[in-house]
Simulated scan of single mutants.
Amino acid sequence: MRQRSMTARASDIHVELLVDNSFRNIVEEGYDGGVRLGESLEKDMIAVRIGPDWRLVAVASPAYLAAHGRPDHPQDLIRHRCINMRQETSGGLYAWEFEKDGQGLKVRVDGQLTFNNPYAMIDAAVSGFGVAYVPKDIVETHTASGALAVVLDDWSPGFDGYFLYYPSRRQNLPAFQIVIDALRHR
C-alpha cells in the first residue's frame, strides 16, 4: 500500500471569508484563523503581519469647513457635527483616538449621523454632513481630488496594521500554511 502525499496546491484551496467588525473566538467557532489589528490580538495566538501600519484621519468637505470652521485641536470637535462609528462588538460609539507628542487623547463626538461602515461615513462627509474619522488609505482618493480635506493631521496616530492570527496549540493543515505564506506581508 502506497501512502498518498499530504501536500496541498494553491489551486486545491477553498477559502471562506466572514467579514464583520465583531471579535470572534476563532477556536470555539471552529475557524482556522482570523484577521485583526495588531493592538487587538490575543496573547496566546500566533500572529503574521499581512498589511502595513495605518492611520485614522479626520476629514470634512471644504464646504463644511467653510461654513463651520476648521478644528485646531481634537477637543474642538465637540462643537462640530461629527459622523460617528457604531462598534458592532460593544454596541457603543467609537471614541476618536488622537495622539501628539506622546500624549493620547480620546474624544467622544456628537452628530446627527452614525454608521457601522467607513465608506458610508466618507460618503456623508463628502456630502457635507460633518467630520468623519476614517482610515487614511480608503479616503486618499477623496483628499487627493479635493472632495475632502484632512483636519488635525498632526494628531492622527499610527496603528499596527492587520495580522492573520491562529492558535499556537494546533497543527496547521498544509492548505492553511499556503494561505499564511500567500498573505504574509513582505
Rank of each mutant, 00 (worst) to 15 (best):
R49M: 02
G128V: 00
A95F: 12
V126Y: 00
P71V: 04
Y119S: 00
N116G: 14
S40C: 02
G128H: 06
A132R: 00
D53A: 15
D44K: 15
A132S: 14
K106L: 00
I122S: 00
M85D: 06
F98Q: 08
A132G: 10
L113N: 09
I78F: 05
S22G: 08
F98W: 07
G130E: 03
A67E: 11
D53S: 15
T89F: 04
P62N: 10
G91H: 07
S127H: 14
V134P: 05
D53P: 15
P135D: 04
V107M: 02
F115H: 09
I122Q: 02
G34S: 14
I78V: 12
G128D: 01
F129Y: 04
D44S: 15
M121N: 11
G111R: 03
V131A: 07
P62Q: 14
V27K: 03
Y133T: 02
D44I: 12
P118W: 06
V109H: 05
L65R: 07
E29P: 06
G128P: 02
I46H: 14
I46E: 14
L113M: 15
V48C: 13
L41M: 04
A58Q: 03
D44A: 15
P71C: 08
L93Q: 12
A60T: 10
W54N: 01
R24N: 12
G51L: 03
I83W: 07
G34K: 01
Y31V: 12
F98S: 06
S90H: 09
A120N: 05
L56G: 04
R81H: 13
P74D: 10
N25L: 07
I50H: 03
G102P: 12
G128Q: 03
R49Q: 15
I78D: 05
N116L: 07
E97L: 00
A95D: 15
R36S: 12
D123R: 15
M121Y: 06
C82W: 07
G102C: 13
Q87T: 04
E29F: 12
D76R: 08
D123M: 05
G34V: 01
P62K: 14
D76F: 03
S127F: 03
R70D: 08
Q112E: 07
Q103S: 11
T114Q: 05
Y94N: 02
Y119E: 00
P71N: 12
S61T: 02
Y133F: 13
N116Q: 14
D101P: 14
Y133L: 03
R24H: 15
